[in-house]
Design a protein around this nucleic acid. Structure first.
Lengths: 239, 239
DNA sequence: TCCTCAAAACCTGTATGACAGGTTGATATT
DNA sequence: AATATCAACCTGTCATACAGGTTTTGAGGA
């Protein structure tokens, strides 16, 4: 096969990259929305005049970035916005020591000062309830660090969701993986029950401010929360 | 082959995902740094007891996210932090209308208010020079929109770099693709030379503040810059 | 006519083998 | 000892095969 339809223009960055571009281009030009089906591998194979191997690797790559969803027997579909790829990139940066946990926290602080303010202004009653609920569950389970952590993460993600800007949600959620790996360290530096409950109180203050719709107060509490968290990490020797 | 070494624990999310995890796990457990080589496909094939097909698709996926670098004949290597995957995610969100340009600008504003302040505090002389240089090139080429845009983008990326937090750089750079697609729209709403030069002046003000090491002033100018940019986009009907 | 259900057609997941061409290191020649 | 050449290894791509899923279709029965 290979009847070379390629115009001898580019220095060919590999057939797979070309296929990836062709697929994303297809999504764009057809104006596909999440859930819409893509051409089958066989169709792509014919259209691009390459082997199924190449097309498959392209589909698989897009699936790894969560731009499309694959499932056996079914055609690939356009995916909803997902944080998968971003999380991987951040985690990669951390494990290869190209970025530090503290740097991530600085970015989180910057972003969440904003999400919390937006949440105070834009939250629906349901979103406010979810945020308050997460804070309450932190207190109720405060003897079980694992559970507290999960509600802590859910708390921050709920605030991001209430900002009504999915890009914020995307970024905040991408950082959750890092949080899962470092959270317990910060928790341990709060050795007494009193310290731990104080930290939970911080979350409740944030939730209250959002409930009251006071963006300035919410941002203030959030800043305090991050300052204490970062201090805890530094005390624990996380640079 | 397939001597099923798999313990019947998980519901098997597919061999490729497993392979991807094995590779990232390898990077983590071996403490690999950017540039370090990974096992060959053949080695991975033996270790995981799967076909080369599966291993290849895993490598290819990681390469698509720019976590590893592939090149013919050579073994795969751990990649430096790269914005490739994030850009793809953002672009996907835009083209599938899951996020709006304005939402991206709101995030950019939030982040760049911080990067510009950090840049004012932390920039090296060389970094300051690069920032000033970009602003100057905007003015010198102001008759050529394409060129102005590229220097504009370089300007913001240089500021992010001067923040000395690679996570900020990552995010700002990921947004550059969106900027490339919308920049000219904002430019056109500034119909007169005077308006266009005023916008360039805004960049010079930011550069000056960074040069002077005044974070508050720098942030103020950055806020003004974004407010005008967003207004221009809204005037042009970009919701 | 309409419903049910089973077979056919289509699709993806994985395995295998083959070969071209790039890269690297060892060997042999000078 | 420097260099040239070749062998071994590696990735890129292709072709084929088959095992399961999924959707479509159409035949037969209500």
């Amino acid at each position: 096969m290979q009847e070379q339809t390629d115009p001898p223009g580019e220095p060919s960055p590999g057939l797979v990259s070309t296929a990836i571009q062709a697929i994303t281009q297809h999504i764009r030009s057809e104006g596909l929305a999440p859930g819409d089906p893509l051409p089958s591998e066989a169709a792509m194979t014919r259209q691009l005049n390459v082997s199924r191997t190449v097309v498959r690797e392209a589909f698989r790559s897009l699936s790894a970035m969560r731009l499309i969803d694959l499932s056996a027997g079914r055609r690939a579909t356009v995916a909803k916005l997902d944080t998968g790829a971003m999380s991987m990139v951040i985690e990669h940066g951390i494990t290869t020591q190209q970025i530090s946990v503290q740097q991530v926290y600085d970015v989180r602080r910057t972003i969440e000062m904003r999400t919390v303010a937006l949440a105070a202004l834009r939250r629906t009653d349901q979103e406010a309830a979810a945020i308050v609920q997460s804070a309450r569950l932190m207190r109720e389970n405060f003897k079980n660090p694992e559970t507290v952590m999960e509600h802590d993460i859910a708390f921050h993600e709920a605030i991001a969701a209430a900002s009504h800007n999915p890009v914020f949600s995307l970024i905040v959620t991408a950082f959750s993986g890092v949080t899962r790996r470092t959270w317990v360290i910060g928790w341990r530096t709060r050795s007494s029950d009193e310290d731990q409950l104080k930290m939970i109180k911080g979350h409740e203050d944030i939730a209250d401010a959002i409930l009251k719709g006071d963006p300035r107060l919410a941002a203030e509490h959030m800043a305090g929360h991050f300052d204490k968290s970062v201090k805890a990490l530094i005390d624990a020797g996380i640079a």
